[in-house]
Amino acid sequence: MQALRSKARELLATKTVQVIIGYASGGGGRARAVFVREAAKADALVFDDSCQQNLAVYFSKPEVRKLGKAALVATPAALRAILQLAAENQIAEGELLALAVGGDDVVPLATFAAIEAHVAARDGDWSAAEKEELQKYEAMGLEERRRFWEEQFSRCLKCYACRAACPLCYCTRCTVECNQPQWIPVPAHDLGNLEWNVMRAMHLAGRCVDCGDCGRACPVNIPLHLLNRRLIREVFTVFGSRSGRSAKGDNALSTFKPNDPEDFIQ
């Protein structure tokens, strides 16, 4: 934590960056995002196990961009989000300094190449618990699974907190707001809720960096991240690609191979 604070102070004092996007203590044992713009206030920064939010989400916001060059306190998922945003041409080289955190250490990563290397060096499989969580639902019968999700989605309020929390949901106007035609019904009812959640998962397929913030953000505790995770696995096993690993290249669904599998096609 001290390393983080002193690095932040140094960056602000030398005007290397204009703002540090990081975590501050938010009360109740929770962390909140903080935007530190003066070296003197760097002590507000914290980093501990409660700091889970993917702060890269703020980087897509125009009001944050206006603050100038930023340094971002970045969890592994945030680093992946930065790479994915770069691959989608949302961040240019040099616009952002990532401060990779983990333990007491802080590693400044100025270039995409450095972030790629950092991510690659620590890349791993899902934890046993994470795998188990997905397997639990896959082990269900089709009908059981349908009922599970129907029950889950019946609680959905269409508050779009999942969208707001997602660093990759940066479109200035989302399909859900289009009403010519109205793709997704506005009121929260079972059909519209299903359609919204399918659409969210599909639009993130091959792009989601698996930070889990959608599920964490959901006020009614729908495990939304499972949908994304299921598709991450699909994309990886079938197409062999994982998003958020490279600042270049196409998303799995905006490219193709002529010999992609098609055994399901008659």
Partner: peptide, 29 residues
């Protein structure tokens, strides 16, 4: 159609996970 094929793969995966029988959608050339 190459792009479509990839989307179908993902869509089928999602349908199945949501408990919708993928046999209801037949893809073909």
């Amino acid at each position: 159609n190459f792009h479509a094929r990839r989307r179908w793969v993902v869509f089928r995966g999602l349908m199945d996970f949501l408990g919708i029988d993928v046999r209801r959608v037949q893809f073909s050339w």
